[in-house]
Write a protein that binds this DNA or RNA. Structure first.
Length: 269
DNA sequence: CCCGTGCCCTGGCGGC
DNA sequence: TGCCGCCAGGGCACGG
């Protein structure tokens, strides 16, 4: 479940390995992950050099001479650097560099997306054109104004990348716990102070998690075998039945917008 | 426009 | 032990 801290960890790790590499060609073993027309994609990406790695919310952006390669890892996407090794079952797209190095996109659930857009218009194009700012860049009054007309639950709103970007299921639970706000509160019921608290909590949680290399739970580990350490800092996520670190009340698990959601029924209301 | 539902996909797990 | 069915979930298409 790569969210902002995991994607940023991938960005930092990959940066060291592929900046300056020139793509000879791409092998699309499972081409459905590529959302732009395949023939164009395969032709345009040839001879492009990786100049910079960026990130917006949960999107990874490889900037080349002429293009922006935009990748969403979704649930389990990850990268590996290899050279002439057998292709594994879940390696779906292989970027072959002129140096002989290979960047392999690995995704058990095949949920990820790979999009190639022109470098001069990618910010104005789907999917980045509708992406909201991430917590550290979002002003409380802007978020408050977006939330005050929403009837949806606050957790659903915080998962909506058009409202605020970078948060996913894990970090929304942690953010709302630290904010003492229940995930099912209608977004419109939040005060300006509540919204300020949520933003401060989100910024803290995301920065702390990023500094620890993200969270490694279940099947997800970042690319290149990097294991995060934020799972040791989780307060409520995956803690069903365990005592709340503040009040000792057992953490409960519930469904919110179809997502597994962990709450302290005493601290959050 | 707003919001809820179903879909994509496969490994892992619970139940029998 | 083996098999079946269901669950996990980010973001989009679709429909009311």
């Amino acid at each position: 479940m790569p969210e902002l801290p995991e994607v940023e960890t991938v960005r930092r790790t990959l940066e060291l390995a592929i900046i300056g590499e020139t793509i000879d060609h791409v092998v699309a073993i499972y081409p459905k992950l590529i959302t732009t027309p395949l023939d164009d994609f395969l032709t345009q990406i040839k001879n492009q050099t990786i100049l910079k790695l960026d990130r917006m919310g949960k999107y990874l952006i490889f900037l080349t001479n002429d293009y922006a390669l935009i990748i969403h890892l979704r649930m389990e996407g990850k990268f590996f650097i290899k050279t002439d090794e057998p292709i594994l079952k879940h390696e779906h797209v292989i970027f072959k560099f002129k140096s002989g190095k290979e960047l392999r996109y690995h995704d058990v659930r095949k949920f990820g997306t790979i999009t190639l857009l022109s470098k001069d218009s990618y910010l104005e194009s789907y999917p980045l054109n509708k992406l909201a700012l991430e917590p550290k860049d979002l002003k409380p009054d802007v978020l408050f104004n977006k939330l005050k007309s929403k009837s949806i639950e606050i957790k659903a709103a915080l998962l909506d990348q058009h409202i605020i970007s970078g948060l996913g299921n894990i970090y929304v639970d942690e953010t709302l716990f630290r904010s003492h706000i229940h995930p099912t509160r209608p977004a419109s019921s939040l005060t300006f102070e509540d919204v300020e608290t949520i933003l401060k909590s989100a910024i803290y949680v995301l920065e702390k998690a990023t500094s620890l290399g993200g969270t490694t739970i279940r099947s997800y580990t970042s690319s290149l075998g990097v294991h995060g350490r934020f799972q040791n800092e989780l307060m409520v996520h995956m803690k069903q039945g365990e005592p709340c670190p503040i009040c000792q009340t057992p953490i409960i698990k519930m469904k919110v917008k179809g997502r597994g959601t962990y709450v302290c029924p005493n601290c959050q209301d």
